[in-house]
């Protein structure tokens, strides 16, 4: 559904590399996640795929249309929800939706089925101006507007940034129901926990794709055993753990430390070492890695 081949892009006359030889393939009807920190190049890739930016190198196809040559066809068949809320704040919910429907030559009634589940949640406020809506409602309206012309592909650029946990969960539920309609969804997010909700993900960093796989596949590809280190005084504990020569990597992770070992070293030995260093409550347990652990490992390779 989306095919990206050797896409490269720079800003400031080549001084800033935004994308570097990016290759990706997104299948029809899947939710594909683009996971990476701020500044990784996610938005640039979205803007190229939605025909807002011309790539410097490489080629890309959306729905079998070339992003450069067939931009008109793409604009008719994709929905785009930019990271920044970009609907008309001085128009009401209904006016915004109506406007985007008519611009695509359709009506709200025609594709109401597609947006119904989302629209009913904001319908009580349909006469309220978009600028006066809460973050979650804005996001739902933006999704409705991106869907109103029944696109084949939906591009969602950081749709959940700045949205509360409950709304985020609701939002992902909505995406799952859209997938049932056969819509291909490319979604970017800086939140690793959302990665597991995608069918497949690509980890992106500094303009390059590090890995593409299913979330399980990425987790399986983690090399070595991961250990969690618990104990009082995270900072000193981190210093002490990093000081142990058998440790390959160690990062703070919430209230724990995640560590991997060089070949030969073992968890119990580290625990004994830490306790000897005065961290009497230190505990080292083997754990299953998450997406973020994989991401950090890939970054360090």
């Amino acid at each position: 559904m989306i095919r990206i081949e050797h896409i490269g892009m720079t800003y400031d006359k080549g001084r800033v590399v935004a994308l570097q030889d990016v290759n990706l393939e997104v299948n029809k009807g899947e939710i594909f996640g683009l996971i990476g920190p701020d500044g990784a190049g996610k938005t640039t890739l979205f803007r190229i795929l939605t025909t807002l930016l011309l790539p410097e190198k490489g080629q890309a196809w959306v729905n079998n249309y070339d992003v450069v040559k067939d931009y008109k066809a793409i604009r008719n068949s994709v929905g785009y929800m930019p990271g920044k809320f970009s609907l008309y704040q001085d128009l009401t919910i209904e006016e915004n939706l109506n406007f985007f429907a008519t611009v695509f030559g359709t009506t709200i009634a025609e594709n109401y089925d597609l947006i119904k589940d989302i629209y009913v949640q904001i319908e009580p406020f349909k006469n309220r101006r978009a600028g006066k809506l809460s973050g979650g409602m804005k996001q739902k309206l933006a999704l409705c507007c991106a869907l109103i012309h029944k696109p084949d592909v939906l591009f969602l650029d950081e749709p959940t940034t700045g949205v509360d946990v409950v709304s985020r969960k609701e939002f992902w539920d909505m995406l799952k129901s859209l997938r049932k309609e056969g819509i291909t969804i490319l979604v970017s997010t800086p939140y690793m926990d959302e990665a597991t909700l995608c069918d497949r993900i690509a980890l992106i960093q500094k303009g390059s794709i590090l890995s593409v796989d299913t979330p399980e596949g990425i987790v399986h590809s983690f090399s070595g055993q991961l250990y969690a280190v618990h104990g009082q005084g995270t900072y000193h504990l981190l210093q002490a753990t990093r000081g142990y020569e058998g440790v390959a990597s160690c990062f703070a992770f919430g209230d724990a430390l995640h560590a991997t070992f060089k070949p030969g070293a073992q968890g119990p030995a580290l625990q004994a070492y830490l306790q000897s260093k005065g961290h009497s409550d230190a505990r080292v347990d083997p754990i299953k890695p998450g997406i973020e652990d994989c991401f950090i490992q890939l970054l360090n390779q």
Binding site: T51, L52, K72, R75, Y80, L87, Y88, F100, V103, F104
Partner: peptide, 13 residues
């Protein structure tokens, strides 16, 4: 400035 032009630009207008 408000970004609305992005949304217009992805339409067939």
């Amino acid at each position: 400035e408000k970004g609305t032009i992005e949304q217009i630009n992805v339409t067939p207008i």
